[in-house]
Design a protein around this nucleic acid. Sequence first.
DNA 1: CACGAAACATACTACTAAGTATGTTGTCAA
DNA 2: TTGACAACATACTTAGTAGTATGTTTCGTG
Lengths: 200, 200
Amino acid sequence: MSVQTKSARASILDAAATAFAEYGVDQTSIDDISRTMNASKGKIYHHFGSKGELICAIVKHSVQLTLDRVGPYFYSDATPSKKLHEMAQAHVTAMISELAYHRVVIEEMRGSKTDKVTVNERMLRSEITALQTDYENMFRKALEAGIKLGQFRKQDLSVTIPSLLMILHAPIYWYEPRGGENISLIAAQLADMAVGAVSL
Amino acid sequence: MSVQTKSARASILDAAATAFAEYGVDQTSIDDISRTMNASKGKIYHHFGSKGELICAIVKHSVQLTLDRVGPYFYSDATPSKKLHEMAQAHVTAMISELAYHRVVIEEMRGSKTDKVTVNERMLRSEITALQTDYENMFRKALEAGIKLGQFRKQDLSVTIPSLLMILHAPIYWYEPRGGENISLIAAQLADMAVGAVSL
DNA sequence: CACGAAACATACTACTAAGTATGTTGTCAA
DNA sequence: TTGACAACATACTTAGTAGTATGTTTCGTG
């Protein structure tokens, strides 16, 4: 077959993300995941050093996907209001489009992790943190530009940014893929809310 | 001593909420909790039938506390904008004031729970759901009133309400009690954002 | 074809943590 | 006083799960 089937690593990532998103990270065992793939636990541990690394890979992928979707709008030359609106729309679209991956992120955001953490995992974590910082900085700069131009209210951005992202994360909690639902409608409304939340 | 010390049940609830909030529900064992209280596992299981029931009690308490703080403002006769602002402020104040309890709620929102669920727990869950529905309805009515008066934008409330609550939940993720931070400042800014998010 | 490594599968170990069974102490009412 | 019950403490059982050790098969390459 010339049709290159999805790589084993990607299959595992998909299956894991789906299972984690559905039942929760802690309630899902590696055995559970392998079972849904008609594979064995050995396969997973061959590709990922630990459960923690698997989770990190999912989270990193989620952040990267979001960055890829939103980035282009940040680097446009639109007015701050319009730019923020487009970024918000892209973010929501990302959330809905790869729902499972992003759901895992939410669950792992408050990751204390007393368990053993492999060296590899520690590296992944710092990479993720870097990506997330980059991402937040995009919103920070867009907001600062809008404030300077008098389009956005003066405000404490360390409060604004996480709250703004909360709005855009919201679909993670309640969206369920049906037939008819119009993704762009939801994205548009949430983007309206986001812009309204910071505007004068 | 006439000073009535806190009831055992309340002590357990506090210790559990604190530990759950700090390390995560799944990473915190009943033994962990009892250890922080200098008590025994038997004490906890004497007052709560299972870990699930303990969690439910915490969640219910959280919802009840929020309801108590926000309710009065809903039943005032302020204009929709002002009413929503006051409700939002009260909500944020609640989040910050009993941070541990509300953090547990967030973690349990996406509760699939394949485990055994006791009958008692099932009852608690439905009570909680009822309280939460009541709570959301307060915001729904306030928003509908504002839309009717032309103060708020026409919008899909099934999208708006969860997103609005997300803004108000935000401090749960980043607030950490220091000395100087001014709670009311944070509450005011988030309330501004909430009102702005739905206004014309 | 051979052979070595990658890509798995299978079986096992070690440990954690929820829940239980049972023992002990204090309290209060009859 | 006593007995019964609430309020704990202690010790144990047991199920589930992360991780490992060890086979087995496939496959690219010389």
